[in-house]
Design a binder for these strands. Structure first.
Lengths: 137, 137
DNA sequence: ATTAATTTGTACGTATGTATT
DNA sequence: CAATACATACGTACAAATTAA
């Protein structure tokens, strides 16, 4: 499979589709290092700009983590289960950048907003937290 | 307040901070149109590239919506409350691009993943859904 | 209704900085 | 020290869609 610059779908989305498929098929496993941006530039004859846009898409989906030494497939990690009692509400949204930094959440990871009946809210990283209805310990 | 290209913090993040502050202070209200990219280019003497990166940050935080005719402050909209019975789990993550399209979710909006005790899962847009523990209809 | 202007989307290039190897 | 790799930031150009004239 290759990338068609003349296709309707933008080059960077085509590349994102391609890499996403490789991840979902297990061709690229959690924790595994992705090829360097320059590798994709060479492999498909596209600009680094397009490669970086594709990476940004995948980061936004929480599928990869990009660090200075390269990108790797994100490992979901073990989630902690939080018991929530009746009346408690659970929502989710993306953190703002200051919140993200404060909570130590990776890019592309939402936060769970858990509001007790009393009105107090907790913000928890959604990649490490599952809310479970039920009182029993 | 202005933008300092020689500061440690990247120009695009400085601009994102600035616009975010204007939104949070109510200077830019929900539904209101943001200035065009070219306006920010002119106002701060920075590249369009930097402006677009700033917009991408704010989109990723779910603060703004960008369409072809411009960006506007996102209106949270009314959320639907979903009752979840004991044993039901609630998580959240970002949708992949195909999922986002299928569910009709805006960029920067996570999805709630609600798993019944039976194992069946529902995907719901987090900007329009609140999960609430409790059985009563 | 056609045209022109506006605005964002995509995509290329180049350059420099910074951290890691 | 040098090579690698990503981050930022400038530039240009054209396409596509919407809005205004």
């Amino acid at each position: 499979m290759a990338i068609d610059p003349s296709a309707d779908r933008p080059v960077y989305k085509q590349l994102a589709d391609l890499i996403r498929a490789r991840i979902e098929e297990g061709d690229l496993r959690p924790g595994q290092r992705l090829p360097a941006e320059s590798d994709y530039v060479a492999e498909f004859g596209i600009s680094r700009d397009s490669v970086r846009r594709a990476m940004a898409v995948l980061r936004g989906e929480g599928l990869i983590i990009t660090e200075l030494r390269g990108s790797r497939v994100r490992d979901a990690g073990e989630a902690v289960t939080v018991q929530i009692s009746p009346g408690t509400q659970v929502g989710a949204r993306m953190p703002t950048e200051p919140e993200r930094k404060q909570l130590g959440v990776a890019e592309g990871v939402p936060i769970l907003v858990i509001t007790d009946p009393g009105g107090e809210t907790r913000l928890l990283p959604a990649d490490r937290t599952i809310a479970r209805a039920g009182d029993e310990a």
